[in-house]
C-alpha cells in the first residue's frame, strides 16, 4: 500500500493503517527517544505515548507541512526533551548533554535481533566527528540550522552543505 494511502486511512482512524505505520516507525522513534533519555523503560513508555498522541491528533497532520516521518519525529523529540526537563527525571539522571548517538551503536551488546545495527555502528563510527555532531543535533535533537551553527561554531550557510555531505556518506553506509 502506498504511504500516502496509509496516512490517509490513519487519519480516518483506521487501526490497521495505524499498525502498519507503527511497525514502520516505532523502532526509529524508540531510538531517537532512547538517545535523549538513555533509559530503556522510559523510552519504551514515551514511544508508545508518542504514537497514542499521534493517533489522537491525526487530523492535525498535513502533507503540505512536511513528511509524516518528520511530523512524528517532532512529537517524539519534544516528548523526550520534555521528559528530561521534568524534576523527577533530573533528580535521577546524570547530565546527558555530552553523549552522542554513536556511543550507543558502539556499545551495543544486545543487538541480536538487529543485525543491521552492528554493521551500521561499525561504519557510522567512521563518520567524521563533525558529521556525527551535525546529525545528532539536526535529526536526534531537532535543532534549527541557526541553533546548530551556534552550537558547533560553524557558519549557518555551511551547515546545509555540510549536512548534505554527511547524509550522503550515511546513505552509502546504510542503503548499500
Amino acid at each position: 500500500m502506498q504511504l500516502e494511502t496509509l496516512i490517509l486511512k490513519f487519519q480516518q482512524k483506521d487501526e490497521k493503517a495505524f499498525e502498519a505505520l507503527y511497525n514502520m516507525y516505532s523502532d526509529s522513534m524508540h531510538g531517537v527517544i532512547f538517545n535523549i533519555v538513555r533509559d530503556n523503560d522510559i523510552a519504551e513508555e514515551l514511544m508508545q505515548d508518542v504514537f497514542i498522541k499521534a493517533w489522537n491528533n491525526a487530523s492535525s497532520y498535513s502533507a503540505e507541512k512536511g513528511r509524516f516521518f518528520t511530523w512524528i519525529l517532532n512529537i517524539a523529540r519534544n516528548a523526550a526533551i520534555d521528559k528530561t526537563r521534568s524534576k523527577a527525571f533530573k533528580n535521577s539522571k546524570k547530565n546527558l548533554d555530552a553523549e552522542y548517538f554513536v556511543d550507543i551503536l558502539q556499545n551495543s551488546d544486545s543487538l541480536d535481533n538487529k543485525t543491521d545495527a552492528i554493521g551500521i555502528g561499525k561504519f557510522v563510527s567512521k563518520l567524521a566527528k563533525k558529521c556525527i555532531e551535525v546529525i545528532e543535533l539536526l535529526y536526534f535533537k531537532g535543532y534549527t540550522q541557526k541553533e546548530a551553527s551556534e552550537e558547533l561554531n560553524i557558519p549557518i550557510g555551511t551547515i546545509k552543505t555540510h549536512n548534505r555531505n554527511c547524509i550522503k556518506e550515511l546513505r552509502d553506509i546504510v542503503l548499500k
Binding site: 495505524f18 507503527y22 523502532d27 519504551e44 544486545s110 545495527a117 535529526y139 546504510v174
Partner: peptide, 27 residues
C-alpha cells in the same frame, strides 16, 4: 528519510519487539 530511519532505528537498543498491542489497548 530511509537512511535516517535506519540510523535512528539502529540506536534503539531495545530487545523488545515494540508490539502494537499496548498502544491498541490504550486507544
Amino acid at each position: 528519510e530511509s537512511a535516517i530511519i535506519k540510523l535512528t532505528a539502529a540506536t534503539s537498543k531495545n530487545t523488545n519487539t515494540h508490539t502494537f498491542t499496548t498502544v491498541k489497548d490504550q486507544i
